[in-house]
């Protein structure tokens, strides 16, 4: 099953995302901010990255931009979780290389459905 890196500084959200994905059978690793995520992403290549946008140390958009620079992450799908439904943040994310986005709040089913779009 596909491996996913779930990045969120909020433990409850991270747990929710990770638990949902694990229940669905994915192999999930958690990271608590962009810096942590980048380190973990270098250790092994994940099939997908799901990241929050607003985080301390390194935000999600910068993380996506940094990951895209790595050859092994050139085509890996990356989803950003954002509370901002405005186009502005999404455009910024797309420009950084995000594959798609999810608008918070979302429930586990929506998460899995969106993931299907990029992993299906």
């Amino acid at each position: 099953m596909a491996s996913i890196l779930a990045v969120d500084d909020s433990a409850s959200m991270r747990k929710m995302v990770s638990f949902t994905l694990k229940t669905a059978g994915y192999d999930v690793e958690e990271a608590e901010d962009g810096v942590d995520a980048l380190e973990k992403a270098k250790l092994r290549t994940f099939d997908c990255v799901v990241t929050d946008v607003n985080m301390p140390n390194k935000d999600g958009i910068t993380l996506i931009r940094d990951l895209r620079q790595l050859p092994q992450y050139k085509h890996v799908p990356m989803l950003m979780l954002t509370t901002e439904s405005g186009m502005e943040k999404k455009q910024e994310g797309k420009a950084a290389g995000a594959t798609g986005w999810m608008v918070k709040p979302f429930n586990p089913d929506q998460l899995l459905k969106t993931l299907q779009k990029v992993l299906g």
């Binding site: 895209r68 085509h75 799908p77 290389g97 594959t99 798609g100 779009k117 299906g120």
Partner: peptide, 8 residues
Amino acid sequence: QTGNDPVR
């Protein structure tokens, strides 16, 4: 280049 794939 954003990780999207027409096949999917």
